[in-house]
């Protein structure tokens, strides 16, 4: 079943069209990888799914994005509410430098005006850190600044921070590109674990990564969706010549 459905969606930066009439069904409780060469619109695509695209000056979206059948660009839809349902992890780990590890995890709840008592808060912090496979490493240092962690830990902290808000979808925009191979392996394992509870869309420029973690793959080129399908099929027997050229390393 499609959790997210893009219907003739185009994205613009001022007059430049970054994405052209994308039609794409993203299945629930699966990992969908978005691949393609630099500048093809991968990041823009996922940023349209939680309405982050429009936070850039002069950026806008045309067409529909349906989340559980409801158009998130419909009239009266509050982007803030959408972002609580569709979490996001960015390329560069960016824990809030003024906050401790536990405050970083709880920030989405605290600043959204949810009144939580200490016990509830501690419970959510622990649950989120466990889901992000970080709990065992930080459980004794919850009061330390988030920036004191290593890069890989910081990225998992950012994942925990996103999960604490209880989203349904998790968008990951090249989450491993700033990390070493071991931290990357951690994050990839995590993605495989999380997909039983979340719908995950992961942007990656690493094709091995896409093959390892995803169930479905979308290949973008120059703002156009060239091919979408089962990851195995895309990597072994793509339908389109461009896809084959890209995954065999002939360009990109």
């Amino acid at each position: 079943m499609a959790k997210i459905r893009l219907v003739r969606m185009s994205a613009y930066f001022g007059r430049t069209r970054a994405l052209r009439e994308i039609n794409l069904d993203i299945p629930e409780f699966n990992v969908t990888a978005v691949i393609g060469p630099s500048g093809c619109g991968k990041s823009t695509l996922v940023r349209c799914i939680n309405r982050m695209h429009e936070t850039v000056k002069d950026a806008r979206v045309e067409g529909d994005v349906l989340l559980d059948g409801e158009n998130i660009y419909g009239p009266g839809v509050d982007p803030v509410q959408i972002r609580r349902r569709v979490g996001m992890v960015f390329q560069k780990p960016a824990p809030f430098p003024t906050m401790s590890i536990q405050d970083n995890v709880a920030v989405g709840l605290n600043l959204n005006g949810l009144a939580l008592n200490r016990g509830e808060r501690a419970e959510i912090v622990e649950r989120s850190l466990r889901r992000a496979a970080l709990w065992n490493e930080v459980k004794d240092d919850l009061g330390k600044p988030g920036t004191s962690l290593s890069g890989g830990q910081q990225q998992r902290l950012c994942i925990a921070r996103a999960l604490a808000v209880e989203p349904e979808v998790l968008l990951m925009d090249e989450p491993c590109s700033a990390l070493d191979p071991i931290s990357t392996a951690h994050i990839e394992e995590l993605v495989l674990e999380l997909k039983s509870q979340y719908t995950i869309v992961i942007v990656t420029h690493n094709m091995q990564q896409a093959a390892r973690v995803s169930d479905f793959t979308a290949f973008l080129l120059g703002g156009v969706l060239i091919e979408f399908g089962d990851t195995k099929q895309i990597f072994t027997n793509p339908e389109r010549q461009e896809t084959e050229d890209y995954i065999t390393g002939r360009f990109g």
Partner: peptide, 8 residues
């Protein structure tokens, strides 16, 4: 960006 993406 991170804060906005958390629905803040």
């Amino acid at each position: 960006e991170s804060a906005l993406a958390l629905g803040i």
